[in-house]
Design a protein around this nucleic acid. Sequence first.
DNA 1: CCGCAAGATGTGCTCGGTCATATGCCCCTC
DNA 2: GAGGGGCATATGACCGAGCACATCTTGCGG
Lengths: 337, 337
Amino acid sequence: MTTPKRRLPVMADVAREAGVSHQTVSRVLNHHPNVRADTRARVEEAITRLGYRRNLVARALVTKRSRTLGVVSFDTTLYGPASTIYGIEQAARTAGYFVSIVSLKSIDTDNVRDAIGYLTEQGVDGVVVVAPQRSAWRALDNLPSGMPAVAVEGMHNACVPVVCIDQVQGARLATRHLLDQGHETVWHVTGPTDWLETEGRIAGWRAVLEEAGRPVPEPLAGDWSPRAGYEAGKSLAAMKGVTAIFTANDQMALGVLRALSEKGVRVPDDISVVGFDDIPESEFFSPPLTTVRQDFAAVGRQCIEVLLRQIDMGPATAERLVVPPGFVVRSSTAPAR
Amino acid sequence: MTTPKRRLPVMADVAREAGVSHQTVSRVLNHHPNVRADTRARVEEAITRLGYRRNLVARALVTKRSRTLGVVSFDTTLYGPASTIYGIEQAARTAGYFVSIVSLKSIDTDNVRDAIGYLTEQGVDGVVVVAPQRSAWRALDNLPSGMPAVAVEGMHNACVPVVCIDQVQGARLATRHLLDQGHETVWHVTGPTDWLETEGRIAGWRAVLEEAGRPVPEPLAGDWSPRAGYEAGKSLAAMKGVTAIFTANDQMALGVLRALSEKGVRVPDDISVVGFDDIPESEFFSPPLTTVRQDFAAVGRQCIEVLLRQIDMGPATAERLVVPPGFVVRSSTAPAR
DNA sequence: CCGCAAGATGTGCTCGGTCATATGCCCCTC
DNA sequence: GAGGGGCATATGACCGAGCACATCTTGCGG
């Protein structure tokens, strides 16, 4: 038996089936209290009998609420963004929201602006921007008016609230730990320029060194990739007097470890290494990596919280929620000899 | 001048501004050819002047096309799913589609069914299911009728097309490589039970051993995590006669490497190790990991291709698109002594 | 036994687009 | 010069829900 183009059932069909008006069906669906129990039962039965599913698109049109949140992100393959988005999605769904994602493969102001534009057309109730680059940040200056938004790891800004992990503090923790171990100074392999995290981590690292009156070595430029860490590691292995390295993320730390091991430099005996992120692999590096832990799930949750508050109660003051970093000591650091 | 609750402009506003009917505005927006050039220009100017953005929700209501695709996935923090979804999102956006994601933290038939249900209500034009577990797979048996769908790494099934990487072939490549190096047999650390990849990889590994008439050791159960690999590695290090290990993914390989190194077992001198996935880190493990490469981006692209074909041309025959795995030889394998 | 408030249900309009169709217009041909 | 075809544009219905309001019940106090 072919079903010749049978249209999906709509509210009116359910209403007819249950012998009530479409409005009553709507009430049942929305758990409105003022419906008699037996009527409710009749409607519910009609719903299951017909296999009716409500059309959220039609609902969104009239309520002007799509219960969908937009996420704009850069390279969702990276552990940080992926984890943050996971946290966002979980929190959003718990709150009854869908998540629509746009992941950009290159970041510039126009890209981000366009992405936000698409999401706006699509009718999202709010946007989370996970694009912690200066260039991306500029796109937030002129958001579509009235669009609730929140940024992950952004700069302070008059209009958009920010949820972030305290990068400076994380870098301080790492650097201080190394100084406390008796190292004279700490070398730093940075993230890509333009990233705010990169800047924060450099700032924290530099601040600790300067406060302690230590020499501040020229940082080595990286790009988050293990390969960049590997290249930096080769350079550092060839230099004299390097005893402590702080890399801006764990993947680069892995590259550094690899390079050092190839050069016959022992970690932590000859050189101590600290990373940033605490990816699941770090614990099993050779040696297990001492690193700064970021609670991405918490960031995701906070984002949704801030965003929903804006959606429900109107524009918020541009707050800045800071999630403190943790520090995990493993075996890649040791006292200086 | 405050703008007191100014509603966003709609088509009618643009029409009035440009002195045409709303239908003409619609034609301009949809690039309908039959619009005089100067009219078009007038409309476009009105659009920019008013900052008008079309409301895709209203459009979706009447066209019954939301230009949104749903993705149901398990733990998008894992490298495989994350990469696949990235590929899906890129391909979808290129084709003018949005992607709405539901990522499940635990997989069972009901979960997946619910997720698909939510997405259906939300009006997605099709669904990609990235949940390669037997239990998830069962949820695909009774999809909402007429909903285009495609599964990543699924079993063969009458109703849903599948895009997958040839797991069996990948495992064969890995195992054969080790046998070719002169190893008597190969030990295997598996993924979690219930995962189809786990089964495929076991099958490929077992087949090669049996074809070569080699003993088939009892596989060690893992769960993709580095820790599971570490535990398995400790067991294997304690056993006699182990010279070659094939782990079902790279993260577990990392754990194995760590455990072996702790026990003073040298890789590849004493034991050879092969992984699966080729995550960006693998190249920088100690030693760099020989592994099976999966082209997740290709999988994502194929998914969208298959899905869009279904959306445009009606239900497809349940095809099965197989992406061949690659094999990357690095330094974690060596001839048996 | 009536009145009235609260509860239960129904009616018709609205959201902002697209679709089918109608209309006006110009130009070309016989 | 009338008829016809194609183009440019306008008109009104419609998608499937929710909302405001109208209407019909019901229960309870006086």
